[in-house]
Design a protein around this nucleic acid. Structure first.
Length: 364
RNA sequence: GCCCUGAUAGUGUAGUUGGCCUAUCAUGUGACCCUGUCACGGUCACGACCCGGGUUCGAAUCCCGGUCAGGGCG
């Protein structure tokens, strides 16, 4: 399932094997909550060299509905994407006030914008996930917003561990199952959660409940505390991180998997990542600029369009423009991760990191 | 040449029985933000009463003159 290929400090390159092929870690997967990424298609993913995406079991169970997956033979055929697909569990939706109704000892009552409320519990999650037939199932966790009390995090952690364990007990078959740690920003809770989840022996271990408003230093601290207790021979995943500098800091600490809406959402608003720094395409200086976003970039957008045209589409609020901008950031993230892996393989991760961070700031 | 109508941020506008206008809204520009459901998103800042004179305690608002624009008549 997972094997290490090379280590450079705590950073490592590995291979994750799934029912739909294998992928090198560390990798970044874009978010396709309802089986589609905003403004991009499965074709766009392929062209942008995206090997893995993450969808959401909760939302997929609402529409198109589970019968669709049973009839079509799972999510891969349904959305016509041949790569690896993770599915998230619905735990993160606890942070959305408009979705969370309540939590009980057994699960989460979520508001369904399209019909009857859904009680998400381990049994239901696994039933859904089996029909969707994703490659990796994220076990059900209990997530609290940043800034709650220790008592609240402790109570949530007990629920989280109960649900996660239940998922593990119920699980069987070819799909991989990852557990998720919690504990807010409390060091002792993070440590005990990492130990508990690790002991449940999942196919991979995720750190959850971070990147939700806490300072980056606190995030790194939580990762530092968790890592020593998470089996080195299994993939480690920090959920929800999409800022390149956070990703590279976490890779340095031994994290293998990332996901986020961040690169896509910001692309649509004119923030483009390049290896020379961050471009804000909204700036007037790009009005008559015939250069691509990034001259060395091989993505479809950079090979085809000038910044001035892309800026024009951005200002026009045009959906096609949003697609082009998204494609660039998707491609950038894949290139970014590829370069990280290459540097680890060559034993030059530190140099790469230093050089990347030196350039990785806002241009203009 | 005469008459009528109008003139408010870069653009389009609200206000025009005088005070509550340090002037509305949209767009624009600038800054910051966006992290396991991503709205064509959010927050903040910048930016205007055509010019001159008058009435009045007080004028974007009323009066006079001018300029410009549109329309009408010669």
């Amino acid at each position: 399932m997972f094997s290490l290929v090379k280590e450079d400090g705590n950073a490592r390159v590995g291979i994750l094997k799934t029912a739909h092929g294998e992928v090198e870690t560390p990798f970044f997967m874009p978010v396709a909550t309802r089986g589609v990424g905003r403004f991009v298609s499965a074709e766009d993913y392929i062209q942008a060299k995206v090997k893995v995406i993450i969808a959401n079991a909760f939302f997929l169970s609402l529409t198109p509905g589970l019968e669709m997956f049973e009839k079509r033979g799972g999510i891969h055929k349904f959305m016509h994407y041949p790569g690896i697909i993770f599915t998230d569990c619905g735990g993160f939706q606890m942070l959305r006030e408009n979705l969370l109704l309540e939590t009980t000892n057994n699960g989460i009552l979520l508001k369904n914008p399209e019909g009857k409320d859904v009680f998400m519990r381990p049994e239901k999650l696994l039933e859904i996930s089996k029909k969707i037939n994703s490659d990796v199932i994220m076990a059900l966790d209990c997530v609290l917003p940043y800034g709650r009390s220790r008592e609240q995090y402790l109570e949530a952690l007990q629920k989280s561990h109960r649900w996660t364990k239940k998922c593990k007990d119920l699980h069987s078959g070819e799909q991989l199952l990852f557990g998720i740690t919690q504990g807010g920003t409390f060091e002792d809770l993070r440590e005990s959660s990492a130990k508990a989840i690790n002991a449940m022996d999942f196919d991979g271990n995720a750190i959850g409940g971070v990147g939700i408003g806490e300072p980056s230093e606190l995030l790194y601290k939580m990762v530092d505390i968790s890592i020593p207790h998470l089996n080195k021979n299994k993939p480690r995943y920090v959920m929800g991180l999409g800022k390149p500098e956070q990703i590279i800091e976490c890779v340095e600490r031994g994290i293998d998997i990332f996901d986020s809406i961040y690169p896509q959402k910001n692309a649509r608003h004119g923030m483009l990542f390049t290896f020379s720094g961050i471009i804000d395409l909204g700036k007037e200086i790009y009005k008559f600029d015939e250069l691509p976003i990034e001259q060395s970039c091989l993505c479809f957008t950079c090979q085809t369009f000038s910044r001035s045209y892309l800026r024009y589409l951005l200002k026009k609020d045009d959906a096609v423009g949003k697609r082009f901008l998204t494609i660039h950031n998707l491609f950038f993230m894949q290139e970014f991760m590829r370069k990280i892996r290459e540097s680890i393989r060559e034993g030059k991760f530190q140099e790469f990191k230093k050089e990347f961070l030196r350039k990785h700031k806002k241009m203009n």
